[in-house]
Every structure is written in structure tokens, then in C-alpha cells.
């Protein structure tokens, strides 16, 4: 169940997008998100869709795989659309009992749906093409200036990469503990919400105990291997910009400029 969520999972493939420096991809994603909120008319959205389409094509990630990743967020998407449609006041198009759909609401709902879809697809493209540790490396480097205002950037990045390493292990463990408690007659699937919440105690307590034990073991293993924070540490895989990274930077800035122009001109 939990394992079927593909949103944001790394998709191993050889492509230009995969090879880009993670910092470029992070910055580009940020710019892309800004641009989604910059554009406000049909040509503008078309421009963004085309840009995203080209990126997806370049990434060699199958379109089907990306769509599959969108499934779990569909519910959120529908709720947003529904709320927008029903709650925005304006010229009434359709009315039933206390439910009203207005022209403005329809437009707002559609815009919101489009923006959300573009947002999720675009940012999941980044995680699909970047290994998690590359991503944390990129973040660590980008956020390094924050160390001057005492933000523990290295520690946060280290925590993230450890969390990523242990997620599959803990998922597997959840599965085993769940089955073991089911073997003792536990029932996780029936009853009302309170009963179900209560039924989780035999699952969550062992899981927490185990997570703490693992954390303790890992801290010891890291210390034994001379880990002492970010200071004086060298990198096995230091990040280095290449020609294509500069080109990518230029392209995304041009893209943002294009979006701004489309908004002003039309």
C-alpha cells in the first residue's frame, strides 16, 4: 500500500536532466513554480505546459510513470476544485438546493487545478531525476550562506539523507510488526475511527522503540567512524558546475522572462 506511492521516487535513467547539477534543478524548480503564478492567461499557460513538456521529454521518464505519481494527490485536487467552484460568488450558471456554481467559480477552479497539476508535475520531475542524496547535497550547498545566521545546514542535510536511507527499512519493519500483531489477532481494518486509532498502539509503540534503537545504534556507528559534524569534512562527490549547468540556468531565467512578458503584453 504505502510502497505504491511513486510521487517523488527517483527514476533511474540516463538523460540530460538527470545529469544536471542538483543545485540547478533546485533553482530551476523554484523559478518554474514562480512562473506558474506569474502567468495568468491561456497563451501563458500554454507556454508553461510546452516548457514542462520539453523537460519531461528530455528526462526520458515515461509520461505514464509521472501520471501514476499524480494519482494519490487527485483527491486533494478534486477538493480544491470543488471548493473553488462552489464557494466563489458571481454570475450563477447552475443551482441545486444550496449548491451554486458561478462562472467565476468555474474559472477559479479550473485555474487552480491547472496550477496545482503543473506544480506537482514540475516538482516531481525534479525528484524523479535527482537521487535523494544528490538532492540533499544540492540543498546543503545552496543553503550554506544560512550557516552565517547559525542555521545548522549541514546537520539538516545529514538528517535528511539518513531519514531517506531509513525510510525503506522502517516501512518494511512496519509491515512485519503489523503482520506479527495480526498473528496475535489484532485487527487494523475494521471498526470506527476511534477503534482503528486505538488499534494502532500495538503497531506504533514497537515501531518507535525500534526507531530509537536504530537511531542510537547509528549515532554510535557514526561516532565510531569519526563523524564530528560538517567542519573539516571533505566530500567524496563534490558538486561542480559544467557547461550544461550554466546553459540550463540561462534557459530557466529566459523562461521566467518569457512568462513575465506574456503577462504584461497580453
Amino acid at each position: 500500500m504505502i510502497r505504491e506511492i511513486t510521487i517523488g521516487q527517483y527514476y533511474d535513467e540516463e538523460s540530460v536532466i538527470h545529469r544536471l547539477d542538483p543545485r540547478v534543478k533546485l533553482v530551476a524548480t523554484l523559478i518554474y513554480i514562480i512562473s506558474i503564478f506569474v502567468v495568468n492567461n491561456i497563451p501563458g499557460y500554454a507556454f508553461v505546459v510546452v516548457f514542462l513538456g520539453i523537460c519531461i521529454a528530455l528526462s526520458h521518464v515515461p509520461f505514464k510513470f509521472i501520471v501514476k505519481g499524480l494519482k494519490p494527490v487527485m483527491i486533494i485536487l478534486f477538493i480544491t476544485i470543488a471548493f473553488n467552484m462552489l464557494l466563489t460568488p458571481g454570475e450563477i450558471l447552475w443551482k441545486f438546493w444550496i449548491l451554486k456554481i458561478s462562472r467565476e467559480g468555474l474559472k477559479a477552479g479550473a485555474t487552480m487545478a491547472l496550477r496545482l497539476t503543473l506544480l506537482i508535475t514540475g516538482s516531481s520531475l525534479m525528484t524523479l531525476t535527482t537521487t535523494p542524496n544528490n538532492l540533499t547535497d544540492g540543498m546543503e550547498r545552496l543553503l550554506r550562506p544560512l550557516t552565517r545566521i547559525r542555521v545548522p545546514v549541514h546537520e539538516i542535510a545529514m538528517m535528511m539523507s539518513i531519514a531517506l536511507r531509513f525510510i525503506p527499512i522502517l516501512l518494511e519493519e512496519t509491515d512485519i510488526i503489523m503482520k506479527a500483531q495480526m498473528a496475535r489477532g489484532a485487527d487494523f481494518e475494521s471498526g470506527n475511527i476511534f477503534r482503528r486509532a486505538k488499534a494502532l498502539v500495538p503497531l506504533l509503540v514497537p515501531l518507535f522503540v525500534s526507531a530509537f534503537r536504530r537511531a542510537n545504534d547509528l549515532a554510535m556507528a557514526m561516532e565510531a567512524r569519526c563523524y564530528r559534524g560538517g567542519e573539516g569534512r571533505t566530500k567524496m562527490k563534490p558538486l561542480k558546475y559544467n557547461g550544461r549547468d550554466y546553459a540550463a540556468y540561462a534557459i530557466v531565467w529566459l523562461f521566467l522572462a518569457g512568462c513575465i512578458v506574456l503577462r504584461i503584453v497580453l
Partner: peptide, 25 residues
């Protein structure tokens, strides 16, 4: 240590082996 899972830090084998030398600078 004893538990094989709880002492591997890297997400790739090579990254884990590099962890100690990285710490040593």
C-alpha cells in the same frame, strides 16, 4: 557492529565506505 542495517549511513555502497575518510578530511 552487530546490526548490519543500523551502521550503514550511505545510500550507495561506495558512499558509505567513503563516509569515514570524508570525516577524517
Amino acid at each position: 557492529f552487530q546490526n548490519p542495517d543500523n551502521q550503514i549511513i550511505g545510500q550507495l555502497v561506495e558512499e558509505d565506505v567513503g563516509f569515514g575518510p570524508e570525516n577524517l578530511g
